[in-house]
Write a protein that binds this DNA or RNA. Sequence first.
DNA 1: GCATTTTGCTTGACACTGTCTAGATACATC
DNA 2: GATGTATCTAGACAGTGTCAAGCAAAATGC
Lengths: 204, 204
Amino acid sequence: MTESEFRHEGLAATLLEAAETELSQSGIERISLRAVAKRAGVSHGAPAHHFGDARGLLTALAAKGYQRLLHYQTSREETAGPEPLARIIASGLGYIEFAVAFPELFALMFNSAVPDRSDTRFFNVALSVFERLVENTQAHNGRNPYTDPDSMKDLMASWSVVHGLAELIISGRAERTLGLDQMTEAQREETLTAILLRVNRTGS
Amino acid sequence: MTESEFRHEGLAATLLEAAETELSQSGIERISLRAVAKRAGVSHGAPAHHFGDARGLLTALAAKGYQRLLHYQTSREETAGPEPLARIIASGLGYIEFAVAFPELFALMFNSAVPDRSDTRFFNVALSVFERLVENTQAHNGRNPYTDPDSMKDLMASWSVVHGLAELIISGRAERTLGLDQMTEAQREETLTAILLRVNRTGS
DNA sequence: GCATTTTGCTTGACACTGTCTAGATACATC
DNA sequence: GATGTATCTAGACAGTGTCAAGCAAAATGC
């Protein structure tokens, strides 16, 4: 691999890293394509060649975020063991852990109209997150959400509480009310688990 | 009241209306202060005199949104009757109804770092929404969320599922999976109620 | 009733933004 | 070695939010 190939292959990745840094520092509403290029050490026109426009760059970054979210969930589930409910809770805790660790990236992925959802890579990896939830739901309640409306309601209730809790935490609306900021890591987990369990209890 | 007095008194309100129209059309990431001013029929520097800067204008708009949200919830609760659980569900349905009716405004209120939360008007009206939930929760489980941690968990679980469901619906992640787009209004309500009830069931 | 201050808004300037186009440089291919 | 292609630079353009200066009208002071 020559130097130029390295630079060629590397610039797209370098730009994505620079974009994530800029995103976490400036927020989704103030991120600047020129600042990203400057951070990556290239001219302001360089990103266009790899990502088309600013939207293309942020779509790629959001897709990268979904892959990381998936990894956070997988990691949690593996330590949770085989019990279906435990895996759903673990998956939810991973979802929240990711949102807290990368709040601006999370906002880009879920609260923004910027990423192009028809982008193949973005679509597929976002679908993977959903299908994991489908599998976990079916393992838990024994019914396929795609064919059983009640099972899909279980799924959406589970997703909603996880997603909503993540949003309320990263927007600062849950930290103080729940006293999360004064808790140990174990207490945090216990508190969040107790909340998630309120929607995943047994009984239709 | 002279013509100039009318314009004077009215411009702030006119700008807010223009801002909401622009927001709903352009979205939170593309709204332009100059376009708002143009729509209101004034120069691009006029808004600064009433709202300081763009953030001030959008903070005022978000506060107006909270008032409207409160109204949507009140309206629903009044028709729901006195039963606490019914009021919680009604309040949640009003929350979702508001989000679906004004998705960009909802995003401005909850998913944006733009509104200044230390703004007195914004803070107070946002607090009103929360305190309504506090009252409903206490009426439902009989314990004060401010002093009883478990009651606060009930509250946050209830808020999370409502907020999360609203987010997932307006971002297009729930409509098709739940088949909401092919339902009658009554069926929609029934489906959403069934989901909300999964977290507000008795027990614990 | 006149002078003065204050208010509400306009106008123009500034730095900054994303995108487009033309050009330069280095690589690959024949 | 010549041609073509990919990668990146550099400049221009319209549009953005904010700021300062100016202006007209209303409010205020005497």
